[in-house]
């Protein structure tokens, strides 16, 4: 197991290195001059551009730029020299001339918003998806099943931004149950109620679509598992239907959910762009979107690499978790 873990971590690091270098290469190939972008839209002052080029290291060959970037991650990085020196402490993802800030700071501001959004939505859709899926499977062909099928249909066909807009129009504008999204984020520990007020509609918006997918998945997995031979064995032992369902069926049916939930969650941590845009939430999604619109390369590179990191490590985490759940995997490892 230890060996397996060490190997998996090493492989993950290697993939991460390759991915981050690929991201670097892609942006080097794109037909932009990153230095020109630093001085604003209608800037034509070659002196400023050339000074910024040297300051930000864009004059170096691409592999050296990448190396400096990696070094910055571990040791921090100094931009420019003399009076105009800017130091971004480790882990430094670079410096954004549009924001006039170390990229890491922008990320640190945006990350809690996206984390709150993703965790809240995950909890919500797991509760609804698993609960409804089990209910539909247990009462197959009856009212609960039909109801859940309708929910699945609506949830999977309604685009997220539409769900979000509908919620905004009704809950906020028409019924005035919640205040209009301010574009600010109140941390949970500062004011829990304000935090909840900001997050509840985005959670529902995101969770709706995922809950529908999970309901369908769990329903089918439970029905399929109920027809397994080992379930017949469990009944033949004289176990009650409750034990057969909870201990024998769910354990096997829900195991694959670990993988699904882990990867969906990782995807959201990269930034739920549409939801953040609709509800004006200053999270990673909005940060990336803004960066793309402004051609803010350092931020684009940083958020891309961050998203890849999250996906790679969530994969690792899911595999480790799975080994605890399924003894067949554990022994093979």
């Amino acid at each position: 197991m230890i060996n397996y873990l060490a190997r998996r971590i090493a492989i993950s690091m290697a993939i991460l290195l390759a991915v981050s270098f690929a991201v670097y290469l892609i942006f080097a190939i794109l037909p932009f001059d990153p230095a020109a972008l630093t001085c604003g839209k209608n800037c034509n002052n070659p002196a400023i551009i050339e000074a910024n080029r040297r300051r930000l290291g864009y004059d170096l060959p691409i592999w050296q730029q990448y190396f400096v970037f990696l070094k910055g991650l571990f040791m921090g990085r100094t931009f420019g020299e003399g009076a105009a020196t800017i130091f971004c402490p480790a882990p430094s993802f670079g410096y954004s001339y549009q924001e006039h800030a170390c990229v890491t700071n922008s990320i640190i501001e945006a990350l809690p918003v996206t984390l709150s959004l993703a965790i809240g939505a995950l909890v919500l859709w797991l509760i609804i998806g698993v609960g409804l899926g089990i209910l539909a499977a247990r009462f197959r062909g009856r009212a609960a099943d039909t109801g859940s099928t309708i929910f699945v249909l609506i949830g999977t066909s309604l685009p997220t931004f539409l769900t979000g807009l509908l919620l905004l129009v009704f809950v906020v504008v028409k019924w005035r149950i919640l205040p209009y999204p301010s574009g600010n984020y109140t941390p949970l520990f500062e004011n829990p109620l304000a935090w909840l007020n900001t997050m509840i509609l985005p959670w529902i918006t995101l969770a709706f679509a995922y809950a529908a997918l999970y309901t369908r998945f769990v329903r089918n997995a439970v029905i399929e598992t109920l027809s397994e031979d080992f379930i017949r064995t469990a009944r033949a032992k004289g176990l009650s239907e409750k034990v057969v369902l909870r201990k024998h069926t769910l354990r096997a049916a829900l195991a694959p959910l670990t993988t699904m939930a882990g990867l969906d969650f990782a995807g959201l941590l990269g930034g739920a762009i549409l939801t953040e845009a609709v509800f004006n939430l200053p999270g990673l999604g909005r940060l990336s979107l803004g960066a793309v619109i402004d051609f803010d390369l350092p931020i684009i590179v940083a958020t891309t690499i961050l998203a890849a990191t999250i996906v790679i490590f969530m994969n690792l985490l899911v595999d480790i978790l799975y080994a605890f759940i399924d003894p067949r995997v554990r022994v093979a490892a």
Partner: peptide, 28 residues
């Protein structure tokens, strides 16, 4: 149901064709 459950595995037991799929893969 409840009386049948008392008999199953106690008075009458059953074994099946495929011993691999008839045992739960996740429990010892």
């Amino acid at each position: 149901d409840e009386e049948m459950r008392q008999i199953r595995g106690k008075n009458v037991a059953m074994i099946f064709q495929d011993p691999m799929s008839s045992l739960h893969p996740y429990y010892s």
